[in-house]
């Protein structure tokens, strides 16, 4: 579960208020489509939820239980230090009005850089709107390199091949991302978001500009992941997404 609480955002002091006091809850196993006209703040909302754009106010809360599970699985930070951080974070929400409900949640924007990075690496997958890849790397390397540690190459390779196969991308070790079609690039970006089997996946316009059959492959894949218990949030203009989503949220331009 991930919860947006009272989120507001504008990009500059004199700029338009893109988001104002947004409150949303996304449950595990949910496939939520965020729809709305251009400029209505879909991508901004998703970026804030993903922890890659600081809101002007408000918090993005994840359950402490899930967060601690990730931390104990990842084991990247010293346990003593981690425990201290969790205590502080928990204390910080004690003053909230709904203490009983929020005591078990952590605001991702209050995490240290190391902790937020770990959250991104282990808990959340993000598919950006543009097809962004590491240049000069093959498809396979784009999936494996960011998550590589001393002894996980074999596991990552297996996982990358499995994900790409399920999304219909062939010969990943021999091709560079610039050689791929737009649809293939989008599928590779989607596969990359699932490399660490995260609990939450956020995709910004994953089917925009793609033909219907490629769009169906991508949406079918996302739906299957939601059915496995993942939280899937998609920003889109594509009405076709509604057929796959379990919930639709509409944003409006102010």
């Amino acid at each position: 579960m991930i919860r947006a609480e009272n989120i507001s955002k504008r990009y500059s002091e004199k700029g338009r208020q893109v988001l104002s006091g947004v409150n949303l809850v996304f449950e595990s196993g949910e496939f939520c489509a965020v729809m709305g006209e251009s400029g209505s703040g879909k991508s901004t909302l998703l970026a804030i939820i993903a922890g890659i754009l600081k809101p002007d106010s408000g918090r993005i809360l994840v359950s402490k239980e899930a967060y601690n599970r990730i931390r104990s699985n990842a084991g990247g930070i010293g346990s003593e230090e981690a425990d201290n951080n969790v205590v502080n974070l928990t204390e910080s929400v004690k003053s909230d009005e709904n203490q009983n409900h929020k005591r078990d949640e952590i605001d991702i924007y209050s995490l240290s850089d190391e902790e937020l990075s770990e959250f991104h690496r282990e808990k959340l997958g993000y598919v950006p709107q543009g097809n962004v890849f590491l240049k000069n790397y093959t498809v396979l390397e784009n999936l494996v390199t960011p998550f590589l540690t001393k002894d996980n190459l074999g596991t990552l390779n297996d996982r990358a091949y499995a994900l790409l196969e399920s999304l219909g991308v062939k010969e990943p070790a021999d091709r560079h991302t610039f050689e791929l079609s737009g649809g293939e690039q989008k599928r590779v970006a989607l596969a990359r978001a699932f490399m660490t089997d995260p609990e939450i996946v956020i995709a910004d316009e994953p089917t925009t500009g793609l033909d219907a059959s490629t769009g169906d492959i991508i949406l079918g894949f996302l739906k299957s992941k939601a059915e496995e218990g993942k939280t899937v949030i998609v920003a889109t203009h594509d009405e076709h997404v509604k057929a796959y989503a379990t919930r639709t949220i509409t944003t409006a331009y102010h």
Partner: peptide, 16 residues
Amino acid sequence: KQDVALMRILGKTKKD
């Protein structure tokens, strides 16, 4: 900038 942003989204720390 784009490489760095991508790496951060994928879980690299600022220090990394």
